[in-house]
């Protein structure tokens, strides 16, 4: 006990409770199960917010070959988990396309870390996300979404094929299962803790 006297007065009034938001980024390729993962543990149905994006067309965008400024919106979904004591964890799914990197930067800033989801049928789709978090130095884990279950020997093969750095935890998960998602999140926070020490 320090010099806190708040115990004598009981719990602080709801309006006075200090609030602390934290966030975890859920990333990976297209249709890999990000929204499913978030929804499996979120206390709210995953919500989708839109951010406006202004950028000069570079020709990468097939729809606009003209060199002008384009205005598009990027959708991003997220969920919330109240952890008690004013601590609220948000899970943000990254918008898939690499050209939305400005949004990734926004999401990664101050984040605990990232879960990179992998679809076993399209392993390489996770590489841009892995590269991004590696470069940023943000703690991340790789979670292989076992859409239809996996044999042990398949897991070994995937582990080798992914060839992520040895110190990056790799977990096999089911994005639909709350318990599985919870395990992945625990693994990430533990990994972040090991990096914080």
């Amino acid at each position: 006990m320090g010099f806190e006297t708040s115990n004598d007065r009981g719990a602080p009034a709801a309006g006075d409770e200090p609030l602390q938001p934290v966030k975890i980024v859920i990333s990976g390729g297209f249709a890999v199960g990000k929204t499913t993962f978030v929804g499996s543990i979120s206390e709210i149905n995953p919500l989708t917010t839109e951010a406006a994006m202004t950028s000069a067309s570079t020709g990468v965008d097939d729809t606009s070959k003209v060199q002008t400024k384009t205005h598009t919106t990027v959708a991003m979904d997220f969920g919330r988990i109240s952890l008690g004591g004013g601590l609220v964890l948000y899970l943000f799914g990254t918008p898939g396309q690499a050209r939305f990197q400005f949004m990734w930067d926004d999401l990664a800033r101050g984040a605990i870390g990232a879960v990179v989801l992998v679809d076993t049928r399209r392993l390489a789709d996770c590489f841009p996300a892995v590269d991004y978090f590696e470069q940023l130095g943000l703690p991340y884990i790789v979670a292989v979404n076992c859409f239809d279950g996996l044999q042990f020997h398949e897991q070994q093969a995937i582990r080798e094929a992914l060839s992520v750095p040895r110190d990056v935890p790799l977990v096999f998960c089911d994005a639909r299962e709350r318990t599985s998602t919870k395990e992945s999140l625990i693994m990430l926070v533990e990994h972040a803790l090991s990096r914080a020490e």
């Binding site: 934290v22 988990i81 952890l83 008690g84 004591g85 601590l87 964890l89 605990i112 919870k182 999140l185 625990i186 926070v189 533990e190 972040a192 803790l193 914080a196």
Partner: peptide, 8 residues
């Protein structure tokens, strides 16, 4: 991080 871990 420890608070978050316990919370989860």
């Amino acid at each position: 991080l420890e608070r978050v871990l316990h919370g989860i």
